[in-house]
Nucleic acid binder design. Structure first.
Lengths: 207, 207
DNA sequence: AGTAATACTGTATAAAAGAACAGTATGGCA
DNA sequence: TGCCATACTGTTCTTTTATACAGTATTACT
């Protein structure tokens, strides 16, 4: 059922890439142009075979209505984009777009909530939060804005560097604690700027 | 710059939802139909205002070419869908689609590699792998197929249950080890079916 | 060698979809 | 009060896009 010819695979690949970069499916003519076909019929006949094989589907007389019928696509939840910042300077205010290093895209179900406009992500460097099972190289998704509750993990700006710490309150005084005996803890949190509160984590594959 | 009127916000919301469920942007007439407008011009004038405010963009004379201009969209990498299985019976062979519980969608950059067709995800229950910083409730992404190397984390089928363990080799014999002193370890791995090798992890927000 | 599925050319047609023209009504604001 | 941005109606026109008809090579398989 799923055995595609080389040409058919090429077309499916093109559809995938086109949608990725253009945000919309190509028209028949656009497909023909990409492959150098002079007749739209070359495309339609291919598409019909792909439809018969269940790889794609479309609605008749509808522009750009092609869809790759991945059975998973139906299950896909809303995918949100969270900006990854390299280093966060003091404000985290207006022109944040300049420091964006990348983008973490993940569905709301997998991270357990819908990130707000103020969400951002950081790539963890170092193992200072290993006690909370956050490792070097992990992406952490944080929310900027809400006041942290005691015990929550926060990103704070220390010496121009943004580091993760646990936010604790002792005798009414807030302070930060590293979750690794090798690191100094108990940093008074009052003078520090809390950049964000930890929400979710993505751990990439190790090489 | 970003202050939208109520109507404009409604239209943006509709565009978002339409794309989510239909995989394509609506046409002007489809937008008009949704809001009960009798003239396509009602839509175009709204879209022009939204364009001027930088919220959307489109290409002239192109069907369904509307796009929400999130600056992050440009940075978005290829998003892959990985099926989440509830319980994995013996084979993991043909008709896997029936046990699919959901879908983890995440971009390839954030998990550090492109999942193959044989990739799948599990929701971790229990804390038997806490020593490897994998917690209860985490989603783990695994690859089915490749032989595990010593020290890698694998999903194995034990008593009909799929559990995570570390794959080790001692004196040429493979065995599995739980990463929690509370659990028994050193289960001979020879009779067990290795379902997949750990690749990446997603930790949802707690509560 | 023969048959069928695949891989195309070339042209024509009709539906779908965007864009333009000419207006009306309403609300906020100076 | 007048002005302007917003929020629409109604219609026409042109481009885009899908689809149908009529064919020719090519490959793959029996």
């Amino acid at each position: 059922m799923a055995t595609l010819t080389r040409r058919q695979q090429q077309i499916v690949d093109f559809l995938q890439k086109f949608q990725q970069s253009n945000g919309t499916m190509p028209t028949i003519k656009e497909i023909a142009a990409h492959f150098g076909f002079r007749s739209p019929n070359a495309v339609t006949s291919h598409l019909q075979l792909l439809k018969k094989k269940g790889v794609i589907s479309d609605e008749p007389n509808k522009a750009r209505s092609l869809r790759l019928t991945s059975p998973l696509q139906k299950l896909r939840q809303l995918v949100c984009d969270v900006p990854v910042y390299g280093s966060i300077p003091a404000g985290l205010a207006a022109d944040r777009e300049q420091q964006i290093e990348g983008c973490v895209s993940v569905d709301v179900n997998s991270i357990g909530y819908k990130p707000s406009k103020n969400a951002f992500a950081l790539r963890v460097s170092g193992d200072s939060m290993i006690g909370k099972h956050i490792l070097d190289g992990d992406f952490v998704i944080l929310e900027h804005g809400p006041d942290p509750r005691a015990g929550e993990i926060v990103a704070a700006l220390i010496d121009g560097q943004c580091t993760l710490k646990t936010y604790l309150v002792k005798n009414g005084k807030p302070f930060l604690k590293a979750e690794n005996p090798k690191y100094p803890n108990l940093i008074p949190a009052q003078e520090l700027v809390i950049q964000g509160v930890f929400r979710a984590l993505i751990r990439p594959t190790r090489n």
